[in-house]
């Protein structure tokens, strides 16, 4: 990992993994949104994503690596950065010069990580179990596709909906700083930067809001 020994290389690696995850979120939301309009389309899309070999055996491992890398590198950097100030200030007015979201990426990140644990237990691990342990690649249950049914079933308990909503709000805050920060880290700071910042803010509101709407929709319409 000597290539990642320099501070700037680490910044860029964080930014690249972040941009990859940002693109992933769009795809994930796009599939989720179909569930608002058509159970059939959602089932077809889910089945395709869940059984297509390219997505399953090429994209999925890359995605998992991207997620793990982003979290591990994030925590490593946070520890190193904490160590760079061995004596704390008696008074530190961080709010005077920077946003809460930018100073607390580790907190929003940790909440998202906790959410991912729940999310994987809810959806991913049962899927993997059905497909690869039980060997059932049909996506069927009693002759019906189970994806939409499972989605509705999972969003019945209020605690899960609440946990998801909280996580998505924190995801929005993480993106609010992270989106434009990723571009800055990669050296992108020019006349188009204000467009990137504006787009980043819209993205940070629209994407988490989309996920929240999906969760609430299925909680109230099952």
């Amino acid at each position: 990992m000597s290539v990642l020994s320099s501070s700037i290389a680490r910044k860029v690696a964080m930014a690249l993994s972040a941009l990859f995850l940002i693109i992933f979120l769009i795809i994930h939301l796009a599939v989720n949104l179909t569930s608002l309009f058509s159970a059939e389309v959602f089932n077809e899309a889910s089945h395709f994503m869940g059984t297509n070999p390219l997505i399953q055996f090429a994209m999925q491992p890359v995605l998992i690596f991207g997620v793990v890398f982003h979290f591990v590198m994030g925590f490593v950097l946070e520890l190193r950065n904490k160590g760079a100030r061995n004596v704390k200030y008696a008074k530190f007015n961080g709010a005077a010069s920077s946003s809460w979201a930018s100073r607390n990426m580790i907190i929003s990140g940790a909440v998202i990580l906790a959410f991912l644990v729940i999310h994987f237990l809810d959806f991913w691990i049962p899927e993997i179990n059905t497909k690869y342990v039980l060997g059932d690649m049909t996506g069927m249950h009693n002759g019906e596709f189970r994806y939409f049914e499972e989605l509705q079933h999972k969003f019945v308990p209020m605690w899960r909906v609440a946990a998801y909503v909280v996580a998505f709000v924190l995801l929005g805050m993480h993106l609010m700083h992270g989106f434009q920060s990723a571009f800055q880290s990669m050296g992108f700071n020019n006349k188009y930067s204000s467009c990137v910042k504006t787009f980043g803010k819209c993205y940070s509101i629209v994407i988490p809001l989309g996920f929240i709407i999906v969760a609430l929709f299925h909680h109230f319409n099952h």
Binding site: R10, V12, L77, A96, S97, S98, S102, M105, S185, N189
Partner: peptide, 30 residues
Amino acid sequence: GNCTNTGACEVECPKGISLENIARMNREYL
């Protein structure tokens, strides 16, 4: 420590040094 682009430095800098310089350094380094 490592920069996380909070932008506090630019605000507090007595000479108004811009964050654009950090992006330029990142480009130069890459």
